[in-house]
């Protein structure tokens, strides 16, 4: 079955040894990235959920406004057509780490425009986009940091959410505000 050709055995052994070394090296490099808790595509540390969360921990939330009403303190997952864990990190990068107000404003404007014009369904770890209550679409968003306490949190109602702190606010300039 292996069909080995005795005459070429030495050459084959060397190439096979190189391939085995390369494979072991790749897996070893991945394990090293796990040890260092670092990712560098395509090397992956598989460090998902690797921290012990405290009972109370912060969460980003968004309130979306449209003329038909407001949807209060929604998860941010439905703001971008990306896996939920990427969305959280990108929001933190844009609204917490970055200090440039123009970048924040521009980003928020584009997020709302896509929600209004190009909604997307859920797939895999991408959550479905938040949908406006009326046909006019969203005209504003408020981004908050809230605290979630596992001892009193009810996931069926997504409440209570403690200590909401407003991080950023955006309103579309072309829509008159009430």
């Amino acid at each position: 079955m292996s069909g080995s050709a005795p005459g070429r055995r030495g050459w084959r052994s060397l190439s096979e040894a190189l391939l085995v070394t390369a494979g072991a090296g790749y897996l070893g490099a991945q394990l090293w990235h796990t040890w260092k808790d670092r990712n560098r595509w395509p090397l992956c540390s598989y460090n998902m959920f690797n921290r012990t969360l405290p009972s109370r921990f912060p969460q980003p939330r968004v309130t979306l406004h449209d003329p038909a009403g407001s949807q209060e303190l929604l998860p941010v997952y439905g703001l971008l057509p990306l896996e939920f864990f990427r969305v959280v990190s990108i929001m933190a990068e844009v609204f917490l780490v970055n200090g440039d107000e123009e970048i924040k404003r521009r980003f928020a404007e584009r997020v709302l425009r896509r929600l209004n014009t190009r909604p997307w369904p859920a797939f895999d770890e991408v959550h479905a986009s938040h949908r406006p209550l009326g046909p006019a679409g969203f005209h504003g968003l408020d981004l908050y940091a809230v605290t979630l306490d596992l001892d009193d949190y009810d996931p069926r109602t997504d409440r209570p959410l403690h200590q909401p702190e407003l991080l950023f606010s955006y309103r579309r300039p072309d829509v008159p505000q009430a």
Partner: peptide, 12 residues
Amino acid sequence: TTLHPKLWSYNS
């Protein structure tokens, strides 16, 4: 991954 290169890419 360019949107957030430090994040693990779970399907590489």
